[in-house]
C-alpha cells in the first residue's frame, strides 16, 4: 500500500511527534515512509495461514523474580534526573 501524507501525519500525532512545518521536508518524509511501507508489503506474499505469531524467540527464561522487597536505585537520585521536580514529584504543566 502507499501511505499518504495525511495518514502519516495522523500516525505521527499518535506517536507524539509532528511533521516538519516546512512543506517540502514534510512531503519528503511522507514519501520516504510510503517507500518503506511499500517495501514491507512483500509480507503479503508469505503464506502464513495457520502460523501463530512469534513475539519472543525463546520460551526458557528466568521469568519474574520472587516478590520480595529489595533495594533499587535511590528514589532521590532518580527524582533528581527529572528536568523539573517539585519535592517528591515530577513536575509537568498544569493539566486541569
Amino acid at each position: 500500500m502507499t501511505l499518504d501524507q495525511k495518514t502519516a501525519e495522523r500516525i505521527a500525532e499518535l506517536a507524539r511527534l509532528h511533521f516538519d512545518k516546512d512543506p517540502a521536508a514534510a512531503a519528503r518524509l511522507a514519501k520516504e515512509l510510503s517507500g518503506i511501507v511499500k517495501a514491507m508489503d512483500i509480507l503479503n506474499e508469505a503464506d502464513v495461514a495457520g502460523v501463530e505469531p512469534l513475539y519472543s524467540p525463546l520460551a526458557e527464561v528466568a521469568g519474574p523474580r520472587p516478590d520480595e522487597p529489595g533495594r533499587g536505585a535511590e528514589p532521590e537520585a532518580l527524582l533528581d534526573q527529572a528536568p523539573e521536580r517539585v519535592g517528591r514529584f515530577f513536575a509537568v504543566p498544569k493539566i486541569i
Partner: peptide
Amino acid sequence: TFALSSGYYEAYFQKAARVR
C-alpha cells in the same frame, strides 16, 4: 506506530510476527 495502529496491526505487525 503505523504497524501497531488500528487497521494496520494485522496486516503488518501480526503478519511480521507470523513470518518470524
